[in-house]
């Protein structure tokens, strides 16, 4: 695979993960546990879609095949989507949303930090802008991990249960595949952030009073290469409904 081919794949992973997570935030609209959280979640969702759009725009330019960012978001099916598995998991209750977001934010922050040093100036620029936002996202989800972990017996129990369910998807945050290794080698991509991710998660788990599971191991699923859980298809069916039902429409 050439670096250019690897790069579009790599950028789609970043974009699709942002997009899918933001879609899950949209599902919270009107359902948040407090008005302040309604606003905060919409904030994070807005940031993520803004970042997704920046990555999609770049992919569209690199591919130069007449398809724009909207096409990439709204016309690709679940086997073409490259998001991390953790992002597509159902929003669940606030413990699920918090844990998902925390696992992702720690990874996202590390990856964007690396990408600000990318040889590719476009990537470095997008990452630098996104990093400011993600620094806030990570702080926010970390605070919620502590609140739920240390709050009440119920919140602690809920969060513990959620960690058990979601943890298996975290191998995608600590492992890299050939595409990521190749781009890291070329000074373009972020490379493996697994050790730093585990350290940070361990630190927060300790403070939140949560037991840290053994590192997650790869299993059948592979979101980065389009092998998703069953949830993604429904998410995309809803999200892509209008552009697919009215392919000739302009919105």
């Amino acid at each position: 695979m050439t670096n250019d081919q690897a790069l579009t794949e790599y950028l789609l992973r970043l974009a699709d993960t942002d997009m899918v997570l933001a879609q899950r935030f949209c599902e919270w609209c009107g359902n948040a546990p407090a008005l302040e959280e309604e606003i905060a979640m919409m904030n994070v969702g807005l940031d993520l879609i803004g970042q997704a759009r920046n990555w999609y725009d770049y992919v569209a330019e690199l591919r130069d095949d007449g398809h724009d960012a909207d096409f990439l978001a709204f016309r690709r099916n679940e086997r073409e989507y490259r998001n991390l598995l953790i992002a597509e998991q159902p929003r669940g209750d606030y413990a699920v949303t918090t844990a998902k977001q925390f696992f992702f934010d720690v990874w996202h922050h590390l990856v964007l930090t690396c990408l600000t040093e990318s040889n590719d100036e476009r990537i470095a620029g997008i990452a630098a802008k996104g990093l400011k936002e993600v620094t806030y996202h990570r702080r926010r989800s970390t605070e919620w991990m502590l609140r739920l972990g240390q709050g009440t017996d119920e919140s602690h129990r809920r969060l513990t249960d959620v960690v058990q369910t979601l943890w298996r998807f975290t191998y995608e945050l600590t492992d890299t595949d050939q595409i990521e290794d190749q781009l890291a080698e070329a000074g373009i991509g972020a490379g493996n952030v697994g050790d730093a991710w585990r350290n940070e998660v361990a630190r927060v788990f300790a403070e939140a009073g949560l037991a840290l599971p053994e590192p997650a191991r790869h299993f059948y699923m592979d979101g980065k290469n389009g092998k998703h859980t069953e949830h993604l298809g429904f998410l995309l069916a809803e999200m892509q409904y209008l552009p697919r039902a009215y392919p000739d429409a302009t919105w």
Partner: peptide, 29 residues
Amino acid sequence: MLPEGNWLTRAPSLKRKLQLMAKIQDEAG
């Protein structure tokens, strides 16, 4: 926020989704 939230997950483009999210966020504010 609810009648608009009804279409938030089905907004037809990135631009429209961002606009609607921002609008709903303003309403919460």
